[in-house]
């Protein structure tokens, strides 16, 4: 599985998001590659992704994607991220 985390610049919040998504996946026992993209390159990078994780502020700017978009508003709360990912993964199955 491939998961893409997206922020505006690809240097700040997406890095925190990537690390916390990885932590959340470990707690769920899910293995996945997690990559980072900025909003400018996200559409292309999302082509091969199963899930795209981003904030509520940026999600509308991504437009329509084939991958499911998971919206996270608190990037430092690993438990909330795990719950959102769990819900998205069970839907995708």
């Amino acid at each position: 599985m491939k998961i893409l985390t997206v922020c505006g610049m690809g240097v700040g919040s997406s890095i925190i998001l990537k690390m916390n998504v990885e932590k959340a996946l470990r707690s769920l026992g899910v293995t996945a590659d997690v990559e980072v993209a900025d909003i400018g390159t996200a559409r292309g990078a999302a082509a091969g992704a199963d899930l795209v994780v981003t904030s509520g502020e940026l999600a509308p700017q991504l437009g329509e994607l084939k991958a499911k978009i998971v919206v996270i508003d608190n990037l430092v709360n690993v438990d909330l991220i795990a719950r959102a990912l769990e819900a998205a993964l069970s839907e995708a199955r």
Binding site: M9, S13, L58, N74
Partner: peptide, 22 residues
């Protein structure tokens, strides 16, 4: 960055991570 992309830098309740690109 905020003017262009919105206040997404507010990454958690009460916390903003102000930044731009290199």
């Amino acid at each position: 960055t905020v003017e262009q992309l919105g206040p997404y830098i507010v990454i958690a309740p009460g916390l903003a991570l102000a930044h731009s690109r290199p």
